[in-house]
Amino acid sequence: MIPPAAFFILAAVLFVLGVLAFFVKKDLLTQFMAVEVMLNAGNLAFLALAKSLGKAEGQVIVLFVITVAAAEAVIGLAIIVLIFRQRKTVQTDELKDLKG
């Protein structure tokens, strides 16, 4: 039997890798994928906790997270498509109109 702690450590590592990917990459699409990785790490942690606490609610929340992630991906991609149409680029460094 694998202790839930092992899964939790795996989730933590996965989350930090997602963060690193977000900051190292410079194009919107890959950064968006990094966000998905972080979400998945969160899911893994939820399931690990559900297992260790013996509660099914953790799984329910994972289902909700996946649903919300799906919605978020749809909208996020739509926005990226829109930005690409207007700017012909998805490089975040070139999208700095908010510069004060």
């Binding site: 900051f23 410079k26 975040t92 460094d93 999208l95 908010l98 510069k99 004060g100």
Partner: peptide, 17 residues
Amino acid sequence: LNFLQSGLVRDYALAFL
């Protein structure tokens, strides 16, 4: 304080992190 407002998403995200 102008330099804080670089307009770059990554900088803002870094501050958030």
